[in-house]
Design a protein around this nucleic acid. Structure first.
Length: 491
RNA sequence: GGGGCUGUAGGGUAGCCAGGGAUCCUGCCAGCCCGGGGCGCUGGUGACCGGAGUUCAAAUCUCCGCAGCCCCA
């Protein structure tokens, strides 16, 4: 086989992100895209393990102040149709169950596109007095959207298989707003642990969640420069409380509407981890969520009488590590090189090679997935060194992804920099996110789309890199007072 | 919302225009040989997206459906 062909088989260039993404999902056994319905995909065992490890982080964060609940998948049309703006936002993309067996249903049932209208009728029943507040619950459920556009595994789905949505009710606007801030911190902690960089913005009014007072969103940047929305947080005010008549009796005996929030993350968080860290060899996973954290590969020479000792050493190293790590000893028949590629594709953060040479020197060879750096470690120190390496892998990929992220945010704020540089802005939009001053009107949003071919993410709340300097300036379109606003091509 | 392209073993492909025997690589299974980055050899397994039509004959032509990809708005 020609070197060129072998190379093509071995590595997948990440420059062509779309192709890379599909190829990695298949080869790393995350998802099988061959299910014969548009927008529905199958989780492979390895992908599901990764997913569950990622979710356990979020679960732990939410469990501190939320109770987990589970609501039905089906919502009666009568409840679903109560909130006018909410309906308008979703009616084009709802799947309906209209038949039971051969009979038409009197009241059609919606497959939830989101759960507000399932949960809030029950909130009305649950909430009596101020003592019941704050009420904070979450659930991890599937939601359905009838997407007509091109769907994409983990990113644009007809069935989101694991929407992690929280719903809260409070006594006042301020208390609900404090909850919004808490939610932001929970999601920050979550993405920090995944080493996925983010920008947090307040979505423009015309792009907020249907029925919300306002929406805060997290976006990350994909390798092709487009942004991916990876979390949203909504202050609902009393909009839904009024629709569903959710009231509490305050200390003075007066009945008041509750103020609500809701916030959620879909399986896009898994896509973000894959896309952010992966390279031409496949997945690179943060050790905390890697289904296999360490793989041990024996190097055996059949004519070498030390081979038995090699296997024995591998097994004892495996035994020493398995109490502290998710570790696999690969005793398969493949040649070492094939094993290396296989485990690299699955993103295993640390590989330990043990061969006759290592055994006679009482050491082993460590190879890091993030840097491919190779070095030897005394067998007596394997556990403590592995701990060190995994910690360092996390720190390195977090530093690396933030640097890369920073290099794709282009600042056109301050000193009238934005004006007269439209071609330059347009060029930057093709590569990442652009910060400009904007007034926030929908007219100017439409104009931004036309001039720069970019969507408005929203005004800056903060980013994983900290706050940027200048926050107020003249709108790049109309010249009115504007705020620091991010624009980008979006998924 | 509009337009275009595509669908051949588990994955990647040739064949299609000009109708007749389905090509090659890889994977998988068995056996050998091996092992510090996808070694090599022998044998085996496995496919024309679904349906209808035209025809003596359809992977190939026509229509419908399903699925995927790309472009424009």
């Amino acid at each position: 086989m020609a070197d060129e062909e072998r190379e093509a088989k071995t590595v997948i260039p990440k420059e062509n992100f779309s192709e890379w993404y599909n190829e990695v999902l298949r080869r790393a056994e995350i998802m099988d895209v061959r299910y014969p319905v548009k927008g529905l995909y199958v989780w492979f065992p390895f992908g599901l393990k990764l997913r569950n490890l990622i979710y356990s982080i979020l679960r732990a964060l939410l469990d501190e102040e939320h109770d987990e609940v589970l609501f039905p998948t089906l919502i009666p049309r009568t409840e679903f149709m109560k909130e006018e703006k909410h309906i308008k936002g979703f009616e084009d993309e709802v799947f309906w169950v209209t038949k039971g067996g051969v009979d038409e249903l009197d009241v059609p049932l919606a497959l939830r596109p989101t759960s507000e209208t399932a949960i809030y009728p029950m909130f009305k029943v649950w909430i009596r007095s101020h003592a019941d507040l704050p009420l904070r619950v979450y659930q991890i459920v599937n939601v359905f959207r009838y997407e007509t556009k091109h769907t994409r595994p983990l990113i644009r789905l007809r069935e989101v298989t694991s929407f992690k949505e929280a719903h809260t009710a409070h006594r006042s606007w301020e208390e609900a707003e404090a909850q919004v801030r808490k939610a932001i911190n929970i999601y920050r902690a979550f993405y920090d642990r995944l080493a996925v960089p983010y920008i947090i913005t307040k979505r423009p009014d015309w792009d907020k969640f249907p029925g919300a007072a306002y929406t805060i969103a997290f976006d990350t940047i994909m390798p092709d420069g487009r942004t991916l929305q990876i979390a949203t947080i909504h202050h609902l005010g009393t909009n839904f409380a009024k629709t569903f008549d959710i009231k509490y009796e305050d200390i003075g005996g007066e009945y008041k509407y509750v103020h609500q929030t809701c916030y959620g993350i879909s399986e896009r968080c898994v896509a973000a981890v894959i896309a952010t860290h992966g390279d031409d060899h496949g997945l690179v996973l943060p050790p905390e969520v890697a289904p296999t954290q360490i793989v041990i590969v024996p190097i055996i020479f059949s004519k070498d009488e030390r081979s038995a000792a090699v296997i024995e050493t591998c097994r004892s190293v495996h035994a020493a590590l398995k109490n502290s790590f998710r570790v696999v000893l690969d005793e398969g028949e493949e040649r070492p090189g094939a094993k290396f590629y296989k485990w690299e594709m699955r993103g295993v953060p640390l590989r330990i090679e043990i061969g006759p040479r290592d055994v006679s020197r009482e050491e082993c060879t460590f190879v890091r997935r993030d840097t491919f750096e190779r070095f030897t470690v005394p067998l007596s120190n394997v556990v403590s060194e592995a701990e060190k390496v995994l910690k360092d892998v996390y720190e390195n990929i977090w530093r690396r992804s933030k640097e890369h992220f920073a290099s794709r945010i282009f600042d056109f704020c301050g000193n009238e920099r934005g004006q007269g540089r439209e071609d330059e802005i347009k060029e930057c939009v093709r590569r990442g996110v652009v910060a400009i001053f904007m007034c926030g009107s929908e007219e100017c949003g439409v104009e931004v789309k036309e001039r720069f071919d970019a969507d408005v993410l929203g005004e800056e709340v903060t980013t994983c890199l900290g706050d940027a300097g200048e926050r107020r300036g003249c709108c790049i379109i109309c010249g009115a007072e504007g705020k620091r606003t991010y624009i980008a091509r979006t998924y």
